[in-house]
Structures are given as structure tokens and as C-alpha cells.
């Protein structure tokens, strides 16, 4: 294992929560300001990828276990589908914005525009889980070395 400098470890420990909160803000205000589920989800993933790079995969796996990242991925996709089906039932067409018709919030406020924030959250969750999983798996493989050793720590969660 490569030794990592103390400065990098310390600073990344301080930085990661801020990146995470920024990601949440980008997702939650996606319908009011630039942002949304896609960039927000990637920012959330990058907070954990920072931990993965600076403090090793054991630490990142402890913060966000593989199984939970996979579950985030699935939950996001399922919530998005569920909102679409609810739109089919309540709004007349698949993915219809039924909440906006039922409770039209005040424009430019956080609780407005019906299903869009819900979908943003779902997509953010999905991208977070998916991208983190992909980067984790790609970084685990020891190219040219013994593949078992690298993967064992991850799959024994």
C-alpha cells in the first residue's frame, strides 16, 4: 500500500463533508438554480472518491459500503419509476407531473414544481451510488498483480 502524506489525509478529511453538503445543495435547489440530480449526484460521489483516493479503499468502504452504494443505485432508479407510474395513475400519462397539478407551490420557493425535486433526489441518489461503485471497482483491480487480494477486502463486507 502506498503511503499517503499526512497533509493530504487531514485536508481531505476536512474537505469531504463540505463537498458532500455542496452536492446536497446542488440537488435540492436543482429546480431553482443551476444544478440538479446529475451534477449533484456526481459531486456526492466525488466526495467519497476523494476519501477513496486520499485515505484508501478500506476507509471509503467503511464510509459507504458496497452493498449500500448498490442499494442507493437501485433505490434511485425505483423511485424514479415509481414517480412515473404514480403520474400514470394520478396524472393521466407516464411521468406526468401530478404533484404540480395537485399542489402548485409558489414559484421560486424550495417546495414547488411538484415531482421535479423528488426526481432530482432520486437521480442524485442513483448517480451517487452508480458512479461510486464504478470508480471503486475500477480502482480495486490490481493490474498485473494478484486480483484476489484487492477484491477480497471489498467483497467480504
Amino acid at each position: 500500500m502506498m503511503t499517503r502524506s499526512l497533509i493530504v489525509q487531514r485536508i481531505s478529511r476536512w474537505l469531504a463533508p463540505f463537498i458532500f453538503i455542496y452536492g446536497l445543495q446542488v440537488i435540492l435547489y436543482g429546480h431553482l438554480s443551476p444544478g440538479g440530480g446529475f451534477p449533484g449526484g456526481v459531486i456526492l460521489a466525488s466526495a467519497f472518491i476523494l476519501i477513496l483516493i486520499s485515505r484508501g479503499k478500506e476507509e471509503a468502504g467503511r464510509r459507504l459500503p458496497l452493498s449500500r452504494a448498490g442499494r442507493f443505485d437501485n433505490t434511485g432508479a425505483l423511485v424514479f419509476l415509481a414517480v412515473g407510474l404514480l403520474g400514470f395513475v394520478l396524472g393521466g400519462s407516464f411521468l406526468a407531473n401530478f404533484l404540480q397539478r395537485l399542489f402548485p407551490g409558489r414559484p421560486f420557493s424550495l417546495l414547488s414544481s411538484g415531482t421535479i425535486p423528488v426526481n432530482n433526489l432520486a437521480i442524485g441518489l442513483k448517480i451517487w451510488g452508480g458512479i461510486f461503485l464504478a470508480v471503486l471497482f475500477l480502482s480495486v483491480l490490481r493490474v498485473g498483480g494478484d486480483p484476489d487480494r484487492g477484491l477480497k477486502t471489498m467483497e467480504e463486507e
Binding site: 429546480h31 404540480q100 414544481s113 415531482t115 426526481n119
Partner: peptide
């Protein structure tokens, strides 16, 4: 008026053209 979303890119992405987003997911 139709979606209540001030960010029109998000409005298109998740309301008018949500099918595309589903396919992308």
C-alpha cells in the same frame, strides 16, 4: 407556468422530456 421550475433545463429534463432521462438512467 406548467412545471413551476425556475430552471428550465431541469424542467425539460425531468418534466417535458422525462422519458429521455429514464432512458439515460
Amino acid at each position: 407556468e406548467l412545471t413551476g421550475s425556475a430552471n428550465l433545463v431541469t424542467a425539460i429534463l425531468l418534466d417535458f422530456r422525462a422519458y429521455d432521462t429514464l432512458g439515460e438512467a
